[in-house]
Simulated assay, not measured.
Amino acid sequence: MNIRVRYFASVREALGAGETLQIDAPATVGDVRDALIARSPEHARVLARDRLLRSALDQVLCAESAAVGDGAEVGFFPPVTGG
């Protein structure tokens, strides 16, 4: 399935505004993060599991256990962002 990934704040500064990802179903937001971590050393550094990041699914805050469907939008951002 195709997922649109968006990045915000410091994650956006490091990885850009976003990208698309193809991932096998079924998948969760955590699976999306893991697939992105495997993409490159920079992805691994910015999205590392030891970094506290918030996630959103279709513009609603969610846990990484949230199920992702085809065409979904997943966002990642640090826990505190400025205006």
Rank of each mutant, 00 (worst) to 15 (best):
L57Q: 10
T20H: 12
T81F: 05
T81C: 15
R33A: 11
A48M: 04
A25V: 03
E13T: 11
D70Y: 04
A27H: 04
L61Y: 13
E19M: 06
V68Y: 07
S40T: 08
G69M: 06
A27Q: 05
D58Y: 05
C62N: 11
S10Y: 01
I23L: 14
A66H: 09
L36M: 12
A35N: 04
E64H: 14
D34I: 05
V5S: 01
V68P: 10
E13S: 15
E13N: 14
F8D: 13
A17R: 15
G75T: 15
D50M: 06
T20A: 14
R12A: 13
D34G: 12
R12H: 12
A56C: 06
V60P: 02
V11G: 00
V11C: 01
A56D: 06
R45E: 03
G16Q: 02
P79E: 13
Q59E: 13
G75H: 07
L36N: 01
G16F: 00
S55Y: 06
G30N: 14
V68N: 08
G71V: 12
A44Y: 01
G69P: 03
Q59C: 10
E73A: 13
V5M: 03
R49L: 11
V46H: 00
A35S: 11
R51S: 02
I37A: 11
G18E: 04
V46D: 00
P41C: 02
G83R: 13
F76A: 03
E73W: 08
Q22F: 03
D58G: 09
R4F: 04
V74W: 10
L61F: 14
R6Q: 12
V46A: 01
D24W: 01
L47N: 00
A38I: 01
V74Q: 10
V68A: 13
T20P: 04
R54L: 14
D50N: 14
I23Y: 03
T28D: 06
G69V: 07
A9V: 07
R49N: 11
L52Y: 10
R45Y: 00
V5N: 03
A66F: 09
R6Y: 04
A48D: 11
E19V: 05
P26R: 08
A17H: 13
E73K: 10
R33Y: 02
G82N: 09
S55K: 06
A17V: 15
G83H: 15
S40W: 02
A67G: 09
G69D: 08
G83T: 15
R51C: 02
I37H: 03
P79D: 14
T81I: 13
P78S: 09
G83L: 14
V11P: 00
F8V: 10
N2V: 12
V11D: 00
S65T: 15
N2M: 10
A9P: 05
R45F: 00
A56P: 04
Q22K: 08
R39A: 01
F77V: 10
L57H: 08
A17K: 15
P79Y: 11
A48H: 10
A63W: 02
L52W: 12
P41G: 07
H43M: 01
P79C: 12
A9D: 06
R6S: 10
G16S: 08
D31T: 07
L15E: 00
A66E: 15
R12C: 13
G82M: 05
Q22N: 07
A56N: 09
A56V: 08
Q22L: 06
M1H: 05
P41T: 01
H43R: 01
T28H: 09
L61I: 12
E64Y: 13
P79I: 14
H43W: 00
D50V: 08
